[in-house]
């Protein structure tokens, strides 16, 4: 049971954010109205995605250092989980954008950047499937993963700040701080982010263990 503490903590955080996210008072803002509550559910997806991609790149580096297959498996399953969260984030963002900004795909740098980052990791999976030999596949995909990561960081964190964006915190728009300073939003938002990061790591962990079992089975 002691090994499961972080899974339980993450679950409690997510459940807490569901209840308080729906019930707690939120600032009254034009255009957003009640949909500001999406902040508790849509934004944590991105945080989870970024954390999980960081885990992927760390494990790719560890693979190159040690040549231990385990790290390669963690890296690939992290990318798979990251893609899942990326797609959920994109789709939920499109629904929200359709309501607040008038179209599912407003020409917003953050949206475009997120889509391109997703493309980058899809390219990673294509690269993996094009290689047959296990050691070579692990090595080359690890190299591509490490190579692509700094570019993704520029894409997600630097480019949107250079151009005007509809998202808060970019292009002169106020950040989250301006909205939730006068309210309890922080008490919901931060646990939600931590909870979803935990859930993402958990899913990754499960996928990694399944893949390890599959590998053992394939070797027999």
């Amino acid at each position: 049971m002691s090994k499961n503490w972080w899974k339980i903590t993450a679950s409690v955080f997510v459940l807490y954010s569901v209840v308080t996210g729906l019930l707690l008072k939120v600032p009254m803002l034009p255009i957003l109205h009640e949909s500001i509550r999406n902040l508790y559910f849509h934004v944590p997806m991105w945080f989870a995605m970024i954390v999980i991609y960081t885990i992927a790149v760390v494990n790719s580096i560890r693979y190159l250092q040690t040549n231990d297959e385990k790290y390669d498996l963690i890296a690939v399953e992290s990318v798979n989980t990251g893609l899942l969260f990326g797609f959920i984030g994109l789709l939920s963002g499109m629904i929200w954008a359709n309501f607040t900004w008038g179209s599912p795909w407003p020409n917003d740098p953050k949206l475009n950047s997120a889509a391109i980052a997703t493309l980058m990791y899809l390219a990673y999976t294509v690269l993996r499937s094009s290689l047959d030999e296990e050691q070579k596949r692990a090595k080359i995909s690890a190299i591509y993963n490490i190579f692509a990561f700094p570019v993704m960081v520029v894409l997600l964190f630097v480019l949107p700040r250079l151009t005007d964006s509809l998202h808060p915190g970019n292009g002169g728009n106020p950040g989250f701080g301006a909205y939730d300073l006068d309210s309890n939003m922080r008490f919901v938002f931060y646990p939600a982010v931590l909870g979803w990061i935990g859930i993402a790591i958990w899913i990754m962990n499960i996928r990694f263990r399944i893949r390890k079992l599959e590998n053992i089975k394939n070797q027999i």
């Binding site: 308080t20 019930l23 707690l24 008072k25």
Partner: peptide, 10 residues
Amino acid sequence: ALISSFTVFA
């Protein structure tokens, strides 16, 4: 404290 603030709407 949190729960008690549920009912307070601006």
